[in-house]
Structure formats: C-alpha cells, structure tokens
C-alpha cells in the first residue's frame, strides 16, 4: 500500500465532510444545533453542479452552491431564531426539504458532465518528493478547506467578533445582557454554516464523484455532525476528525483492494465509538465540551 497515494486519496475524500463540519462547528459555537447539514449539502451539490454546467466555471459553481445552501439555511434560521421553533425538529425538516428540493431541481442534470476544477500544483512545494504529491497537488477547494479551518481558528481566537460569537453560544442570557445581538450573531453563523455545507456538497458533485445523482451525498451531512462532536468544537479537531472519518473509509477500501479481510462494519462504526469516547473524556475532565447554550432557543424577555 502506497502511503503517498493513500494520503492524497484521504484528502479528497475528507474534503466534503471537512467543509460541512467546519461550518457546522461555527453554528454550534454560536449555540445553534442545525441537524439539517445533509439537506444543505445536497442542495449545494445540485446548485453547484447546475451552475458549473451553466457557466462552464467550477469556481462559479462553488460560489453558487455556497450561496444557495446558505439561503436555504436562512429558512432554518428564521424559524429557530425569530419564530423560536425547536432546533432539532427544524433541522430534521430542513433535511427533508433539501432532499426533496434538490431532486426536483436536479431532474434533467443526470448524465450531464460538469467542468471540474483542475489540479493546482503549489509552486515549489509540489516538487518535493513524497510530501509534494501527498499535500500539494490537489484542486483549489482542498486548499480552500484548509484555509477555512485556519481562518475559523483565527477568527474565534483572535477577533472580537469571534469572542462575541463564543459568548453568545456559551450563555446567551449574559451575552444579551452585555448588549450583544444574539439573534443576529446566530443568523450570521447559520448563514456561514449553510455556505460551508453547500461547498462540501458541491465538492461531491463537482470533484469527488463528479456527476449529479439524486441523494448522492448519502449521509455525509450526518458524518459532519459527528465530526464536530469528535473535535470537541475546536477547528483543528475538526480537521483531524474529518481526515480520520474520511480516512477510515478510504483505508478500509484500500485494505480490501489489497486483499486483506477487514471487518467492514466494525471498522465503519469505530469513528463513532471513538467520538463517544472523546466526549466522555472531555466531560469527565470537567471541561465543558459543548457550548453552554447549544440547542436552546433564545427569547429576549424585555
């Protein structure tokens, strides 16, 4: 088994869930649990595909996917933030809507070929033996996903806006008392999460597969939710989690291809068991893993 090819494959396979998970992490950091990631991803997949076919530009495809899924996520935001509906139920509803809507929008795009982004060799770095082909010969979205992780990390850690976002997620009553606009912050986070999920979906339909088929994200959105938990809401944890979750699938397939007998079910459930373990460990240490207000509706009683 060639580790270089393996790592390169894992990076491609992990990028959709990485994109979706980093967006969802920001949403959850703001105290909102949006279970509709799958619905936003599949919407991004179809809109990105359609836009890339229509304009001939994969970059525009990705942009349209981000925008489309983000707009869809605003319905979730409106319901949960302004009409104070339950986040779990609304998120599940968003998944239903996304799956249905994408199938209707996508009718007619089956069997169509979309322009995919080419490989972008990072000058200099791509030539390094071993490291080069592993990390520096991917399409631009792989680098975008990594930059997003770093960007989110820096945003949460160093900026005032990031601090406010965390405060809102940790304790919305206090944040409100301090004069922060809880609902607006959360709407912005939801919008960002939707855009990221849309990018992740478009990566499936434009790069990883690349084609449009109904229901093609096949549960990737749910994996993204697990990754956020695995990461215990830290950006670089999300990176590791996405590569671990994506890596287990790719590794399992490679082991099979190499002729090894692998207990497929055991291997596929292992990331989730590890996630539970991680959750237990962080909570046993007394650290507050999840943001304090996660999943709770906020209503400013005047």
């Amino acid at each position: 088994m060639d580790p270089v090819l393996l790592v390169a494959s894992i990076m491609v396979s992990a990028t959709p869930i990485l994109l979706a998970a980093i967006g969802e992490m920001v949403v959850e950091k703001a105290g909102v649990l949006n279970l509709g990631v799958e619905g936003m991803m599949i919407t991004g997949a179809v809109i990105g595909f359609a836009a890339a076919v229509g304009t001939g530009s994969p970059v525009l495809g990705f942009a349209a996917a981000a925008l489309g899924a983000a707009v869809l996520s605003l319905t979730f935001g409106f319901l949960t933030q302004y009409l104070l509906s339950n986040q779990v139920a609304t998120g599940l509803g968003l998944t239903l809507v996304g799956l249905g809507l994408s199938a209707l929008v996508g009718a007619g795009f089956e069997g169509v070929r979309a322009p995919g982004p080419g490989k972008l060799w990072i000058p200099g770095l791509a030539e390094i033996p071993v490291i080069g082909p592993m990390f520096f010969r991917h399409d631009f979205m792989v680098y975008v996903s990594l930059l997003l992780v770093a960007g989110v990390w820096a945003f949460l850690k160093f900026t005032r806006a990031g601090l406010i976002l965390r405060a809102v997620g940790e304790d919305h009553e206090s944040a409100h008392a301090l004069g922060y606009k809880v609902v607006r912050v959360r709407m912005a986070a939801i919008f960002f999460g939707g855009a990221c999920a849309g990018l992740g979906g478009a990566y499936v339909s434009l790069v990883r597969v690349p084609q449009w088929t109904e229901g093609m994200t096949a549960g990737a959105g749910w994996i993204a939710l697990a990754i956020v938990v695995f990461a215990s809401w830290r950006p670089f944890g999300v990176l590791i989690g996405a590569y671990l979750f994506g890596g287990v699938t790719v590794l399992q397939l490679n082991l099979q291809a190499a002729g090894a007998n692998v207990p497929v079910e055991l291997l596929s459930m292992s990331p989730y068991l590890i996630t539970i373990l991680v959750l237990v460990v962080i909570s046993a240490r007394g650290v507050h893993g999840a943001p304090g207000s996660l999943g709770r509706s906020f209503h400013a009683s005047a």
């Binding site: 990883r208 790719v250 397939l253 490679n254 291809a257």
Partner: peptide
Amino acid sequence: WFDPAKEADATQALLDQ
C-alpha cells in the same frame, strides 16, 4: 447498491493499489 461517493472512493482505492 448506490452511494456514488463511496463507489468513487472504491474506484480510487483500486487504482491506488
């Protein structure tokens, strides 16, 4: 029977081998 992303990954894994 149907999971385009997984089928794509499997194809890539075979090629890698």
